[in-house]
Amino acid sequence: MKISVNKFLLVIILPVLLSSGELCAQDYIKEQYDYSKELFKSEQYFDAITELKRLLFFDKSGAYNFEANYLIAQSYKSGARLNDAVKYFTISQMYARNDSLLFQAKLEVVKCNILRHTAGQSLNLLNQLERDEHFSNMQREIIYWKGWSYMFMDMWDEASLQFGKISDNHPLKELSDKVVKDKYSVSFAKVISYILPGSGQIYTGEYLSGLMSLGWAGLFGCLSAESFVADRVFDGFINSGLFLRFHHGNIQNAEKFAVEKNKRISDKALIYVQYNYKGPKP
């Protein structure tokens, strides 16, 4: 009878007791994770990373590998250290326990790429996600972030197309359409400047600069013609050179204004989105 009791002890209690050491360790590890999370919540990101690294170092079971790496990445992201954030989000993907966590980590990489203005990379990642059948039920989200990528790539017409797939009156579609409408055509500005100096600047709303260009080109055009007519060849060449310089400069100037104004329009839209848009943001 005694032997059977001890056999019972051996079979039932021994594994429990042996695993208790691990359970104790897991308590410390959990405590460490909770402490790291507290630091993260109180925005002490540098210290949060230290504690998460300590957790990863001592947690040999790897139970918190996903969460710890993900939180490290979030901390770096909050400190605007986007390259490091991308690295740790990528590491966390290796430990994702299911498709949902994997998608979450991948999407964070996309968002970091959008924020660090490497939206071309985020678009590639989104295209891969779109083709992956594991994420076939996440298409709406993928399209949404594709729209964001296009906005940061300054391709507002494509952005409008993506947001339009979600809803015809999506606020970001309306904004993208407005940006497309407000932008100037750079090639048109250059062509009209070639034909009539100053007209490109006037098209972009820089009236004074346009009139100045017209004035300089007109003045040196007239002076060179006058010099050649009066057989002052040297003066003629000098004035022609100046005419050509101002004519060429006027085309460059028109292009510069159009590009600058377009950039200002895009920037204004992005600033508006950052402060006023209520939906999910990178």
């Binding site: 005694k2 032997i3 042996l18 410390y28």
Partner: peptide
């Protein structure tokens, strides 16, 4: 000898339990 082992088994297990509580995890 079997009986002797059985008699000391609980003590042996307690030692293991105690030691694992003090040294919770070798990697620590």
């Amino acid at each position: 000898p079997g009986l002797t082992i059985a008699r000391f088994l609980p003590i042996f297990l307690l030692i293991i339990l105690f030691s694992s509580a003090v040294y919770p995890y070798s990697c620590l």
